[in-house]
Computed example of a mutant assay.
Amino acid sequence: MLYRAEGIVIRSMDYGEGNKIITLCTEKWGKVGVLVRGAKKVKSRHAALTQLFTYGEYVFFRNGTGLGTLNAGEIIESHHSLREDLIKAAYASYACELLDRVLQDEETGAFWFHQLKACLMSLEEGKDPQVISNLYEMKILQTAGYGPELEVCVSCGQSRPDEDMLLSPHLGGVLCRHCKHLDPPAMNISVRTLGLLRLFARLDLRRLGNVDVKDSTKTELKQAMRALMDAQLGLRLKSRNFLDQLDKYNI
């Protein structure tokens, strides 16, 4: 059967002497693997379609749910500038790898697709990559069914003053000080950071404007999202390790 789909390349790997297999996040068909014959050859007309972050229209043959074979394609947005910038490439790679690991084959991909598309576009436009990444992580958690409870205590269900709230990644949300005994390692969190987390929970990446966040708040925000991601998803990602190395050397 012949398929036509808009998709973003979230993984690209060599296959055999001259071929590549790409993984696409598509709006209609979810995550799809496609074989691109001859993509490694110098004069290949399809080589550009296999580049990571490329957004394009792909036409491929596919029997059932197996690997497709590319027939034709057209680039809509190459995101060439993302691949040329070390920082942007690192964050874009993280976004793609995270989605690849969370999104199951054949799972409906419309929302995932639009969030990834908005994430890559925001990175290309020069918006703060860490803020974009943390907002994207929140969308991933929510869509995967692990969105944190940020309005009321996850244990007693009571609404308390923000100053009395802690963050419990293990329990999946905020925990009031009256219930701290249920999770002694629960994290202290500032009112400002809690407010940002709530904003991220409500905000669609496609509506993100320019967000100016103080460095101290960004540090706490990163720690909070990292703890939530680790507790709820527990993924080990090469791209995240690389981001940590960049932070270590202040790149």
Rank of each mutant, 00 (worst) to 15 (best):
110 A>R: 14
8 I>R: 01
132 I>L: 13
41 K>Y: 11
189 I>Q: 02
46 H>T: 09
98 L>H: 05
45 R>D: 00
122 S>N: 14
31 K>I: 01
8 I>F: 04
151 E>K: 10
24 L>M: 00
57 E>T: 10
213 V>S: 05
119 C>L: 10
39 A>I: 05
244 D>F: 09
153 C>G: 03
182 L>S: 14
170 H>V: 15
26 T>E: 08
55 Y>N: 06
212 D>T: 07
84 E>H: 03
233 L>S: 03
9 V>H: 06
68 G>F: 00
57 E>F: 11
54 T>L: 08
185 P>A: 05
241 N>D: 15
245 Q>S: 12
66 G>D: 10
251 I>N: 06
62 R>M: 08
102 V>C: 14
208 L>R: 04
216 S>C: 06
44 S>G: 13
75 I>P: 02
139 K>H: 12
26 T>A: 07
246 L>E: 06
175 L>A: 10
56 G>S: 08
187 M>A: 14
79 H>D: 10
249 Y>C: 03
145 G>W: 01
45 R>A: 11
214 K>S: 12
192 R>L: 06
243 L>Y: 05
130 Q>F: 06
197 L>N: 03
153 C>L: 10
218 K>V: 00
53 F>K: 07
127 K>V: 00
209 G>D: 12
214 K>L: 07
169 P>N: 05
177 R>H: 13
69 T>P: 00
39 A>G: 03
36 V>A: 04
37 R>M: 12
35 L>H: 08
134 N>L: 11
84 E>G: 00
150 L>W: 01
195 G>F: 13
8 I>S: 01
79 H>M: 05
238 K>Y: 13
104 Q>N: 07
234 G>I: 04
87 I>G: 00
251 I>P: 00
97 E>Y: 07
2 L>K: 10
167 L>M: 12
187 M>H: 13
217 T>H: 10
175 L>H: 11
110 A>G: 05
131 V>I: 15
193 T>C: 06
161 P>C: 13
143 T>Q: 13
235 L>W: 10
248 K>I: 07
106 E>A: 11
39 A>H: 02
9 V>D: 02
230 D>V: 07
210 N>Y: 08
26 T>I: 05
211 V>I: 15
75 I>H: 05
98 L>T: 04
40 K>R: 15
1 M>H: 09
220 E>G: 04
162 D>A: 08
171 L>Y: 13
26 T>H: 05
171 L>K: 14
109 G>P: 00
215 D>R: 01
247 D>Y: 10
151 E>Q: 13
118 A>I: 12
37 R>C: 04
158 Q>D: 12
247 D>F: 08
90 A>W: 01
41 K>C: 06
234 G>C: 08
78 S>Y: 06
214 K>C: 04
188 N>L: 09
102 V>N: 09
176 C>L: 08
205 L>D: 00
14 D>N: 15
155 S>P: 04
187 M>T: 08
31 K>N: 04
75 I>K: 01
